[in-house]
Design a protein around this nucleic acid. Structure first.
Length: 298
RNA sequence: GGGUAGUUACCAGAGUGGCCAAAUGGGACUGACUGUAACUCAGUUGUCUUUCGACUUCGGUGGUUCGAAUCCAUCACUACCCA
């Protein structure tokens, strides 16, 4: 059967380099699985593959959207699966590379078919929250979807609001639409995790942030400062600089915060991926072992 | 040399006789997470223990007291002020 090799790992661990090497070995393209590299306006701050790297190996889902468009893990599944399937027909093996946990799951397990929330419903639900507060949200959710109410984190407003949106949108309880089943794919999946000792990872992240600043992250972010409310710009590396632009933080502090938030993000990624027992872990520089492992799976 | 204020857990910082292993915030760590997910949320954070609980802490030492982070003495250090 055709195989999709899925390379995951925290930000800054070194996924790009090894994946380009593997792609060349297979003669295949790379499917990026990064919820922020998808935005063509965000290059430096998302450490997107460089022009040179993109020329070496074709990448899908890098810079294919604008920050002004809305996108989601569900849409990503719909867009990517057919492309992965047709690509696998051509090259037998292919690569999915990225650190966006939910997006990886969308490809590997699939996520339930829940309609995209229209802006009107979203706004209505937000208004409701503004008026009634978290208590109101809980009350309404308990009424509309008692089953989900029992399961959700009652402290997590954002998740509850989403459940409410879905109830409002579909007229059905959110829990009805959540089958939580794992979709079968017509290709095999082999997951490779890249990790490093914590200290080493953090040091790389810190250095990379400084490097991004040298490459012009500040200018890149400044252009989009007027649009800072966009969800696509609620992104490490940009949101902190926005605080500097509006005068609430010093530049130095903003840079420190980018480093700190990047480290935290890396930890969250590791927490998520550690739960996945299908992942075989490697140090990114153990190229020989990785290649041997990949070959054993062909 | 004189004076004043201070020294609390990783950091900042409350607490000024028992309700104190010690508020709160930050950091760190751990975790949850099926559509705005680089989001959002939670737990832990003196030691030992699964729990109950036990034990050692609030600059050092020595006191007062049934009982001290809290009061007294003294030493050390820090900051500011006066010389």
């Amino acid at each position: 059967m055709n195989t999709l090799f899925v390379i995951v790992g925290p930000t800054g661990v070194g996924k790009t380099d090894i994946s380009i090497r593997l792609a060349k070995m297979f003669g295949c393209a790379i499917f990026s699985c990064d919820s922020r590299q998808m935005f063509r306006e965000l290059k430096i701050g998302t450490a997107a593959p460089t022009e040179k790297q993109l020329q070496e190996v074709p990448h899908f889902f890098v810079g294919h959207k604008s920050i002004f468009e809305t996108y989601s893990a569900g849409q990503f599944e719909l867009d990517a699966i057919p492309m992965i399937e047709s690509e696998l027909k051509r090259t037998q093996n292919s690569l999915l590379v990225g650190g966006s946990m939910l997006y990886v799951d969308a490809i590997c397990k699939g996520i339930d078919d829940i309609p995209t929330i229209d802006p009107k419903t979203r706004q209505e639900v937000l208004n409701f929250y503004a008026e009634e507060g978290i208590e109101g949200v809980r009350r309404k959710l308990k009424l509309l979807d008692p089953e989900h109410y029992r399961e959700v984190d009652l402290m997590n407003v954002k998740r509850m609001l989403h459940a409410l949106e879905v109830c409002e949108m579909t007229g059905r309880p959110f829990s009805d639409l959540r089958t939580q089943s794992v979709k079968r794919r017509n290709f095999s999946i082999v997951k490779i995790g890249l990790t490093r000792p914590r200290e080493e990872l953090y040091e790389r992240i810190n250095q990379r942030v400084l490097q991004m600043m040298e490459e012009g992250l500040e200018d890149e972010a400044r252009v989009f400062y007027p649009h800072k409310a966009l969800n696509s710009l609620n992104t490490v590396g940009y949101k902190e600089l926005f605080n500097y632009f509006d005068g609430s933080w010093t530049k130095e502090f903003a840079i420190n915060m980018i480093q700190q938030n990047s480290r935290r993000y890396a930890k969250k990624q590791l927490t998520w991926f550690n739960r996945d027992k299908e992942i075989t872990w490697f140090h990114p520089e153990s190229e020989k072992e990785i290649v041997e492992f990949v070959q054993s799976k062909l």
